[in-house]
């Protein structure tokens, strides 16, 4: 049976050393859609993203990518199948130049230079910095590079872990703007964020996590007007 969803997760549970951090979360992500995952610190958002990308083992549940059920997701396979992942921190190779970082994003691809030209059109601020080590970039530029590196693999799905973390408000706006532009190219984006208002401005749908579980799902308007938002963010179950 064909599916219009590019990524589907059913009852995903995952965690570290046998400890369940994400508990029975299901989600669906369509082409060109931005689905935002919100929740307080420690609610399991980043763990969910790592489990979906295969960086952590699935304790329960199953995953479907582009209509194919996956037995055991692992990062190399996920990249080959069109999933890009941008971690919250340490998301560039600091000793490599910007150009080399982009090349690594399309490892083994012969025409990576053509892809780089396309990606640079989306992130023109990187053009002048191509020969600089990533170590010399500002926080915002590194986030741009991390996004650009992930796009070099021409993913169908992008998993982004708090791309606005630690950025000044102006830079947050620019980063969110780029994610919006990426989405317009048809890429599905699963965005984990702490910055609720900025994230919801570009989201089609979202859900809130608390204690490793999904506690509310809805449109940005529904989430913003949800009466228990405050309580959830102070660590209490809604």
């Amino acid at each position: 049976m064909s599916s219009s969803w590019v990524l589907e997760a059913e009852g995903i549970s995952s965690g570290y050393a046998g400890l369940k951090v994400v508990d029975g979360v299901s989600l669906r992500l369509g082409r060109g859609e931005v689905l935002v995952v919100l929740g307080p610190n420690g609610s399991g958002k980043s763990t969910l993203l790592k489990a979906l990308f295969g960086l952590l083992p699935l304790m329960e549940g199953r995953l479907r990518l582009m209509g194919r059920w996956l037995e055991k997701p692992e990062p190399e396979g996920m990249v080959r199948m069109g999933v890009g992942y941008v971690p919250q921190v340490d998301n560039v190779f600091p000793s490599l130049t910007v150009r080399e970082n982009l090349e690594m994003g399309a490892f083994g691809v012969r025409d990576w230079r053509r892809r780089m030209k396309n990606v640079i059109e989306l992130f023109p601020e990187l053009q002048k910095k191509l020969d600089l080590p990533a170590l010399n970039l500002s926080g915002g530029e590194r986030q741009m590079l991390a996004l650009a590196r992930a796009l070099m693999a021409q993913p169908e799905v992008l998993l982004l872990d708090e791309p606005s973390a630690g950025l000044a408000p102006g830079m947050v706006k620019r980063v969110m703007g780029r994610i919006e532009e990426v989405r317009k190219t048809g890429v599905a984006v699963l965005l984990v964020e702490q910055n609720v208002r900025s994230a919801l401005q570009i989201a089609d749908r979202g859900f809130i996590m608390a204690g490793g579980r999904k506690v509310f799902e809805g449109t940005p308007e529904e989430i913003l007007s949800h009466r228990d938002m405050g309580r959830i963010y102070f660590g209490m179950r809604g």
Binding site: V79, F93, S95, M104
Partner: peptide
Amino acid sequence: ATSDNPGLARASG
């Protein structure tokens, strides 16, 4: 790249 960050290298394919 692998020596900089093996985890990110893996996530980059």
